[in-house]
């Protein structure tokens, strides 16, 4: 039986991951900003598990670092040993919107990098203290290369990816498995209305890829998998090309 903590399960890819884990009988503990939303999502997961699963929840807001320790403590009290802590929460805004709004820029950079890392640091201590476990964090393909449409969002995710890579190098032999998830364009509420690039994916497939990567104890997973090759090429394009192209 898997015991999993999810931060960000009320929406998008986190919700889909939670549903799939619930469907295979995992015991879940949900962290999020709104207790009302958490309760609704918990009921949904329970029903998707056949009606009698145990789904706990506690308040945790990435913008309120004081909430991290009590939330993780509540999760540990609820689950006992934790097999995985999964973070799908984060902010997104288009480059256009960010360039026009400094406050939003600061907020996005802080939440996606500084505060997510702060949460992960506490999650890391907790997992190491109990002898190991998996820390799975949603970064983005946007962090793989500085690109015109995601200059700021991409920078926040590049920092996060670098942090997760470092964790993997430093702590894997102590039992901490760090999985950095790099979703490409996925059709969720976050991306609705944006122009869809080729190889867009659905949350169902992304969640299945992430579960498989966790099983295999991978350090990085691109989802949908095609994005691994897309980014392989983009990372190798010379700067004079990147200055010309729009992606």
């Amino acid at each position: 039986m898997k015991r999993i903590v999810l931060l960000g399960a009320t929406r998008g890819m986190g919700r889909e991951l939670g549903r799939q884990f619930a469907g295979e009988g995992a015991e879940l503990f949900l962290l999020g900003r709104s207790l009302e939303e958490l309760a609704k999502t918990a009921t949904d997961f329970k029903e998707r598990a056949g009606g009698d699963a145990k789904v706990g929840s506690a308040y945790c807001d990435l913008e309120d670092p004081a909430s991290f320790a009590p939330a993780l403590q509540a999760a540990q009290d609820g689950l006992g040993t934790i097999d995985a802590i999964i973070v799908t929460a984060g902010l997104f805004a288009t480059q256009e919107k960010l360039e026009a709004d400094l406050d939003l820029t600061q907020r996005l950079l802080t939440v996606n990098f500084a505060l997510t890392v702060t949460f992960c640091e506490q999650a890391r201590s907790l997992l190491l203290a109990q002898g190991g476990g998996a820390l799975c964090v949603f970064s983005s393909v946007a962090g793989d290369r500085g690109r015109k449409p995601v200059v700021l969002y991409g920078a926040s995710k590049a920092g996060l990816s670098a942090y997760l890579e470092g964790l993997d190098h430093k702590y894997r032999d102590q039992g901490l498995i760090t999985l950095c998830v790099k979703p490409g364009f996925v059709r969720t509420g976050m991306t609705t209305g944006l122009k869809e690039p080729p190889f867009a994916g659905d949350p169902e497939a992304v969640a299945a890829d992430v579960r498989r990567a966790l099983e295999k104890k991978k350090a990085v997973v691109y989802a949908p998998g095609m994005w691994r090759w897309v980014m392989f090429i983009i990372r190798r394009l010379p700067r004079f090309v990147m200055r010309k192209v729009g992606f």
Partner: peptide, 17 residues
């Protein structure tokens, strides 16, 4: 310009068996 698509709002909120 647009219609609101509901398909992402698909939670089961309560069930009494």
């Amino acid at each position: 310009q647009a219609a609101l698509g509901t398909t992402l709002a698909d939670r089961i909120l309560a069930f009494d068996d």
